[in-house]
């Protein structure tokens, strides 16, 4: 089997993906916690996450990130540093 780096999902199934993590979209298209109603924010940039700027979830602490490449760059750097890949 070839090495798998990323699980990709199509934008259309975002609600189902979020559901899996107990998150959902509110009427404004923002991503919220299903139980607290709190709007999720990118932990690196503090941006509110919505259906358009949401990039995905990073492993570890399940970080929900926006489409900011800096978050990906840090993740790759960290992984390489820890020789996890």
């Amino acid at each position: 089997m070839k090495k798998i780096d990323v699980i990709e999902f199509e934008k259309e199934v975002l609600p189902q993906i979020l559901e899996f993590f107990d998150k959902t979209l509110n009427d404004d298209g923002k991503i919220i916690d299903k139980f607290t109603g709190e709007v999720l924010r990118d932990p690196f940039t503090n941006e509110e996450l919505n259906k358009d700027n949401f990039a995905g979830i990073l492993p570890g602490s399940s970080l929900f990130i926006s489409k900011n490449l800096a978050s990906l760059a840090e993740f790759i750097t960290e992984r390489e540093k820890n020789n996890k890949e």
Partner: peptide, 12 residues
Amino acid sequence: KLSKPLLVSEFA
């Protein structure tokens, strides 16, 4: 916990 990044295709 995820073991791989889970990313929307257009960003992957």
